[in-house]
Design a protein around this nucleic acid. Structure first.
Lengths: 215, 215
DNA sequence: TAGATTGTTAATCGATTAACAATC
DNA sequence: TAGATTGTTAATCGATTAACAATC
């Protein structure tokens, strides 16, 4: 195991390994080799072994990896074994959808509560999650110290709300606003830019239309 | 201009350039150099020039780039100038949220209609978009030939629905199901894996908690 | 003109893949 | 034991950055 800097490319592959191992685990498979897993996932065996070696030695020569064990280890690396508190800021359609559908526990978090400015929403509860006034945000953060905030406010309020959250000691922001946030570098920002994602799909389709017509 | 293979890394940076140029354009800025844009975006000037050179020559020595022009060119590369038809399959909370909030036109698409299995939804209209029965899907695709389907059905129906869409000639799938879809390689699949995204945030927070406590 | 900045070629850096000794 | 497969070191490949002649 090399205790060096771990690249973003490696980190972004971990959830996918985790997902595959979870599925194998559910299906009752006990062991797997890097070769077999790689074939199934469409990556090289080398890459899997190289990636895992950043974090430790989880396999056994001549055998491969015990699925339950490796899954647990990757879960630990990703931090799902120690769930942290999470709040949702902005209960519009998207915030609503996340509260209703998304399994935060599987992502290593515990959804505590939500905040919004709309008096129609404040005091209600969505899928068992209480919606509070933004006025309570400071007091709430001081008391419960949530680690992460999901930012699902309108574009126009994005940076201002992020600043508030950072000032209140939030450690990470899951940003759905499609706005480029600037923040203290100690705060982790994970962007989910729908627009960027769809544009890459547009590109690929435009490109292969062009290729077909130029043949 | 080199007419070679264009890497995924380059393509994924284009929407971000587009976003910045759009903002500058809105603010009325006329020209920008790769140096200034790079500083603002936190990338090197070399990278910007190298990326753009994959597609043509858009700048002028001693001057830089005309923002309106470059923005239009990147828009063309991304295919936003020729909007394509898009349908939404699955009108749960997330499908709903996308219909209500998301500006598909900006992403190079025109939202035509939506499909669902729920009889409570079929025949209604969400934000001006008609919700049809899945039974109409085949006939609809045969007639309108939509380019892209947004897949917002439950996990359990994901692969089956994707197979149907592919058989009906869909060219791309914007996949929100957090399921790894397999499909003919001529179909572009763009995954928006919320769970993977949140796990990387969990990792970063778990990691710096560990670092702080080990000091 | 002189200064600025491009597009591109060359150099560097990092990430992926291949090879292999160690060993279960 | 023999075969399989690991973790790691070395080789390759690709992506990023730097340098610079061309020129607006």
């Amino acid at each position: 195991m090399k205790k060096q800097h771990i690249s973003d490319a490696v980190i972004r592959r971990l959830p996918r390994y985790y997902r595959y191992l979870d599925e194998l685990h559910t299906r009752g498979v006990v062991r797997i080799s890097s070769g077999t897993l790689g074939k199934r996932m469409g990556v090289t065996a080398s890459q899997i072994r190289q990636d895992l070696s950043c974090f430790g030695e989880f396999g056994q020569q001549g055998y491969g990896y015990n699925i339950t064990e490796l899954r647990t280890e990757i879960g630990r690396i990703l931090g799902v074994d120690e769930p942290r508190r999470l709040i949702i800021v902005g209960v519009g359609h998207l915030g609503h959808a996340l509260i209703q559908n998304f399994d935060f526990a599987q992502g290593g978090f515990r959804l505590d509560t939500a905040f919004d400015v709309s008096s129609a929403l404040i005091g209600t509860s969505v899928n068992g999650v209480a919606v509070r006034s933004m006025d309570e945000l400071a007091a709430y953060c001081a008391e419960k110290i949530p680690a992460v905030a999901v930012l699902t406010v309108p574009k126009s309020a994005a940076q201002e709300t992020a600043d508030r959250l950072v000032a209140l000691g939030i450690r990470g922001i899951w940003n759905f606003t499609n706005v480029e946030l600037s923040a203290d570098e100690r705060v982790s920002i994970e962007n989910v830019h729908f627009a960027d994602s769809l544009l890459t799909l547009s590109y690929r389709i435009a490109k292969d239309s062009a290729e077909r017509s130029s043949q």
